[in-house]
Design a protein around this nucleic acid. Sequence first.
DNA 1: GTCTATACAGTGATAGAC
DNA 2: GTCTATCACTGTATAGAC
Lengths: 214, 214
Amino acid sequence: MTATPATCDRILDAAERLFAEEGFYATSLRQITQAAEANLAAVNYHFGSKQALILAVFRRRLDALNKARLARLDQAQEGNAAPELEDVLEALIVPALAFTHGSADDGHRFMRILMRAFADRDDQLHRALSAEYAHVMRRFASAIATALPGLSERRLRRQLDFIVGALTYTMAESTSSDAREIADDLVQFAAAGLRSAVSVRHPDGAPRTLEIHS
Amino acid sequence: MTATPATCDRILDAAERLFAEEGFYATSLRQITQAAEANLAAVNYHFGSKQALILAVFRRRLDALNKARLARLDQAQEGNAAPELEDVLEALIVPALAFTHGSADDGHRFMRILMRAFADRDDQLHRALSAEYAHVMRRFASAIATALPGLSERRLRRQLDFIVGALTYTMAESTSSDAREIADDLVQFAAAGLRSAVSVRHPDGAPRTLEIHS
DNA sequence: GTCTATACAGTGATAGAC
DNA sequence: GTCTATCACTGTATAGAC
């Protein structure tokens, strides 16, 4: 066996790195095959198309992530006892954030920027829009801080990220067309989440254990 | 004055429609200019680049959306009385969902599919990944239903969309690198939101007024 | 099977004539 | 302002070498 990985894997590695650095659209197959020291046609031979290569790059990481999620859920469910709500949510959330915001010493290194590249079609576009409407979000953060005092600026910003994430995802993905009903649900969901952040956490982020549900 | 709009506006209209139907990447400038009955070079003359055209398409709608948000927030804040938390959140959320899930008779018609095109780099990729890992989300929906009975399937799915949206956005956007702290916050945020959905709403979605905060 | 060289139609961008 | 012609570059397909 040789010291260098097979062509197929070298392409995957190079593609992941370049996609994360420059985005899918901006990265050409010629860049990828050159970095992988492979021939241009090798991409289509091994993967079929650029689209399929992108999918393969994601699949390699998401398989591991979802395996970790299900393992954690299995562990919480073993012994026939139904797990607490918080345990279920931890199985869903903790592995995901460990992959994107955790230690940077293994293959997860590019997962976060890969998610970025996935989430927005083009970094430039997303950055431009964020900057353009940043004053709107600042006004809302201020209004929330007035209506609900007691959150540090850092935590308020994080909570607002949760809300904007839920809203953005719902705007794009939801299939129901009853805007008012969805909005009512999201307002209630967000308000409950915000209030729980004030009532449970210390004003500054001192370490804590989740005791709210015990 | 003529009956047909200026070239610049015809390009914007055609671009918005085609982007929404086929995505940014799949739509060529030649398609757009042909549909707008304009010359190919007119795009670069009026907007500078394809990237700038995409930005202009979004800006036209997002300007209106954020204006509506701020107007609603102004209205809630008038009379020197600090608005309730729910009123602030409604100003943020209701106009957004009205734009994407509201009446389809005006220029907002394509906003939702435009958001789709914005959120995922390529519909095919997103669909493929969703289908591939749908069983994971189904298992989590089931575990949540067990831990927290009383939500209809439809509402549980919607709440789960909120959580996945917040998680996805955080994975891509958050700058902090403390995975455990963010995860703790999100778990708590999601749990509080879920519990409030059970305790306030009728089991089936009967009309209601938001009375939780009064 | 694995990989290479090469050709092809279509892309965004631009310079310069009108 | 608008248009034509042209550029370098893209993803893809295929014929054939090893």
